[in-house]
Design a protein around this nucleic acid. Structure first.
Length: 418
RNA sequence: GGGUAGAUUCCGGAGUGGCCAAACGGGGCAGACUGUAAAUCUGCUGUCUUACGACUUCGAAGGUUCGAAUCCUUCUCUGCCCA
């Protein structure tokens, strides 16, 4: 498979805002040659799903593949057993090996919806660093790799420094960067991998690997980091009322996923279109050229495109249709993508307290929270404001066999009576 | 090993016998305004309760007291310093 000569990977990344730092000025030339370049990104299998924060590196792999290079997806089966100290102020809990393996499988499936895995020259390859790290022995590792790591230097790494100033760092975590450096060299040896990419917090780890390979193998590897995605208003990216926005439809339903992107701030739309969609930048510029309310169209495109990429065309169509219906004047919330559940007529017949119904719908986590919601004027039933927290909902409240309760303007839940 | 400081509700961080479900800030939720935006203003932010109130919470377990997040004992964990 030959590479299309038109697009240089580095140019695309630069144009789309993906490059935070790179290890050498000539890195662009690495991607300009006729042969595919093999590059890797590591993912931590600390949960059974990635969240939207991981979408930046995933898109990095996507473009790498589109430009005719080969992505390696390294799941940190071994490193997850240790825990990355980067960006944390305290230790994370250790996971069992079974958990890590199950998580790794789930994560690989998610990446697979964006990146093609196969045996071709540009097909992505899934690897688990436990395959080479787990069998190492302590003494061999110390003798072979140990001399090439300067503790003085390691102590100056941001990832470590943060912890030295915080609650301390354990020896276990201190070894994380050694493991990751070892990974890079290992992938160079086994797969001819010459580039590692990652989030900006991975800079130190990437540099360690590069130095190790230079010292032991005289290899000239390169690294590239992606910027930390921030929100223009200073809030954390990828968080919502309910916490993280996940890629798995079980944790974050596609409708909610769509809504997350639909609700980004004006100032972030252009940046996010560059990061999280595959639309040509010329089109992105056209979409975001107009300011003011016109930006809403760009947000719809953003939400649709990202949802399509992760959850597929059908889910994106459904989410879009439901959102448009629900937020239009008619407030039609009959669509399948709107969060809903069946409610047995027999259960409703004797009457259900509005508080209980709220909790059942997941709009509040306790009766007290539901009560506060009502006190604040934020709850409505079938579009009628609910002012009385003692309100009992009966079958006569159902409209066309449905009960629609709404918390605030954006959170809905529908019960289908049956 | 020795010394010393600390562990508070989602986070940071006050509180050092009753006025503490616990200041203040952040975060979060809701209302107003809007464009399903931002900014701003307002209210709420342990559980149960119509309410009165009850119950659980201040690292863990015991104890003193009419009464403890606050005092005592032991334990666990952490920071810093010394050797």
């Amino acid at each position: 498979m030959s590479r299309p000569m038109s697009a240089n990977f580095h140019d695309i990344l630069a144009e789309r805002g993906f490059i935070a730092q790179s290890t050498d000025a000539e890195i662009r030339a690495r991607f300009a040659g006729p042969a595919p370049v093999t590059a890797y990104i590591g993912f931590d299998p600390t949960a059974d799903s990635l969240h939207v924060g991981s979408l930046v590196p995933i898109m990095g792999l996507y473009w790498l593949q589109q430009c005719g290079h080969r992505p390696l997806v390294v799941v940190g089966g071994a490193t997850a057993l240790v825990g990355d100290p980067s960006g944390k102020t305290e230790a994370r809990k250790m996971l069992s090996r079974e958990d890590v393996q199950a998580n790794a499988q789930a994560i690989a499936r998610q990446i697979g919806s964006v990146v093609r895995f196969d045996d071709s020259a540009t097909g992505a390859v899934l690897l688990d660093n436990a395959d080479w790290l787990a069998s190492l022995t302590w003494i061999d590792l110390l003798r072979e790799a140990g001399p090439h790591f300067s503790v003085n230097r390691m102590l100056t790494m941001d990832s470590v420094k943060g912890r030295l100033e915080g609650n301390g760092i354990s020896f276990l975590e201190f070894n994380y960067m050694v493991m990751q450096a070892y990974d890079f060299r290992q992938l160079y040896r086994s797969h001819g991998c010459t580039v590692q990419m990652g989030g900006q917090d991975q800079w130190g780890n990437i540099v360690m690997g590069l130095e190790l390979a230079r010292r032991t193998d005289e290899a000239h590897l390169a690294g590239l980091t992606f910027p930390l995605v921030t929100r223009s208003d200073g809030g954390k990216f990828g968080k919502s009322e309910k916490g993280n926005i996940w890629l798995s439809p079980e944790r974050t339903p596609p409708y909610e996923f769509y809504q997350f992107w639909r609700n980004v701030g004006d100032a972030d739309v252009r940046k996010f279109l560059g990061f999280f969609t595959t639309l040509p930048m010329a089109q992105v510029d056209a979409l975001t050229a107009e300011g003011g309310a016109a930006i809403n169209h760009a947000k719809e495109v953003l939400a649709y495109e990202v949802t399509r990429l992760i959850h597929g065309q059908a889910a994106a169509d459904a989410a879009k249709a439901s959102a448009q219906a629900a937020f239009s004047a008619a407030k039609d919330v009959s669509g399948d993508a709107i969060p809903h559940a069946a409610l047995a007529a027999a259960e409703l017949a004797p009457g259900i307290g509005i508080l209980a119904l709220c909790v059942k719908a997941g709009l509040a986590t306790s009766n007290g929270e539901a009560r506060r919601l009502i006190a604040g004027g934020g709850l409505s039933l079938n579009d009628q404001p609910v002012a009385d927290d003692k309100r009992v909902v009966t079958p006569t409240d159902a409209v066309e066999g449905r009960l629609v309760i709404r918390a605030g303007k954006k959170r809905w839940f529908r019960f289908d009576i049956g």
